[in-house]
Amino acid sequence: MPQADRQGAPAGVPEGDAVRSVQAAGGAPLSGAGWARPGNRARRIALLVVVATVIYALDQVSKFLVVKFLEHEEPLTVVPGALVLTVIRNAGAAFSIGTGMTIVFTVIALTVVVAIVRTARQLRSLPWAITLGLLLGGAVGNLTDRIFRSPAPFQGHVVDFIQAFPVTRFPVFNVADSAIVCGGVLAVFLAWRGYQIDGTRQTEEETSGSGAEQAAEPAGNESRAETRGEVPEQTREQTREQAGDRSRERADG
C-alpha cells in the first residue's frame, strides 16, 4: 500500500502530478493563465456590476453636464485638432449609424442587456467580468437615453458629444459608445486566445492533442485486437480461401 506524504500525495508520485490529480478530482480546470484563473462566481459578478455601474455613472453624468452647459452653444475645443466637445442628438446606433431606426436599436439594446445578465450566471473569469461590465454599462447608458429622452419613450435620441480629430470627420460619440467598443474588442481578443466565460482556457495544444488522440484510437484498437488474437473478418475469409485452395491441390495431386 502506498504511503501518503505530509501534503497528501501518494509516495512515488511527483508533486506536480499529485497537484493536477487533486485539481481534476475537485473539478478545477487544468488550463488557463494566472490572470484569467477561475475564481469565485460571486466576486466576478460583483466586479461586473462595479465596472458597469462606473461606466453608467460616467456616461450619465457627462451627458447631463454637456446638455446643461454646452447644448446650443459653440463647440468647445479641449485639445486643438484632437478633441472637441459638441452636443448632438443621435437617433441611430453608436457613432450615428442607422439614424431613423431608433425603436429597432432600443429592442437590440434590451436584448443585449438580457443576454449579458443571463451569461453572468456562468461567470468565473476576471477578464470576462471586466468585458461584460463594459458592455453592460455602455448598453444600459444608451438604453436610458432611448427610453427617457425626447422625442418619445423608447424612441429617445442618444446624446453624443465627443468629437475626436475633427479633421477626419470621425462620428461624434459618447462614453457609453467607447465602453461598448472597448468591450467588443476585449471579447474578440479573449475568444481568440481561448479564454472562456467560466475561467477555463481552450488552447491550440489541447485541440490538436484531442485530434491526435482520436486519430490514434483506431490504430490502437487494431493493435489491441491483434494482441488478443482477434482477427478481422476479411482476414479470416482470406485464410479460409487459402485453406480451400490447398485442399483442392492435394485432391488433384
Rank of each mutant, 00 (worst) to 15 (best):
L83Y: 13
G184Q: 07
P2M: 02
V113F: 03
V87G: 15
R37G: 15
P166N: 02
G156I: 04
G133H: 09
P10M: 03
P151S: 13
R44N: 14
A212P: 02
N40D: 14
T207P: 06
S178K: 02
W192D: 02
Q163R: 11
G183F: 09
S210N: 03
K63Q: 14
R228N: 11
P14V: 05
L186N: 12
T53G: 12
V167L: 12
A33N: 03
G81A: 08
V78S: 02
G141E: 06
V188R: 05
R124V: 06
V107P: 12
V167T: 13
G194L: 13
G156V: 09
R193D: 15
A179T: 08
T53P: 05
A82Q: 03
G244A: 04
G16H: 05
N174F: 08
G133L: 11
V175E: 05
P151W: 10
G92S: 03
R124K: 12
K68T: 01
Q163I: 01
S150I: 00
A251G: 09
P38S: 10
G81D: 09
V112W: 13
L76F: 03
T200A: 13
Q202G: 01
S62M: 08
A109D: 10
S178Y: 04
R224C: 04
T131C: 15
L190E: 07
E233F: 14
A94H: 03
G100H: 10
A216D: 14
A179N: 11
A120Q: 03
A187M: 10
V158I: 11
V104S: 07
Q234P: 02
I55H: 04
V112N: 09
P166A: 02
F161P: 10
S150F: 00
G137N: 09
V159T: 14
S96H: 06
A91N: 05
L132Y: 15
G39R: 05
Q122H: 09
W192I: 05
R118F: 15
A129C: 15
A139H: 12
W128D: 05
Q60S: 13
V167I: 12
P151G: 15
R43Q: 07
R236K: 12
L58R: 05
R193V: 10
T99F: 04
A225K: 10
N221T: 05
V61E: 06
A243W: 00
A120I: 00
D160Q: 00
A129M: 11
H72I: 00
V113D: 14
G183D: 05
I103V: 14
L123S: 14
G16V: 07
L186S: 15
S208R: 12
E222F: 13
V188A: 15
P38W: 02
V66D: 10
V114D: 09
A36Y: 04
A28K: 02
K63N: 04
G183E: 08
G194D: 02
T200D: 10
A11M: 11
T53I: 13
G32F: 06
G209C: 06
R20F: 15
H157I: 00
A18V: 00
S96A: 11
Q3N: 12
E71F: 13
F161Y: 15
E15P: 11
I97D: 05
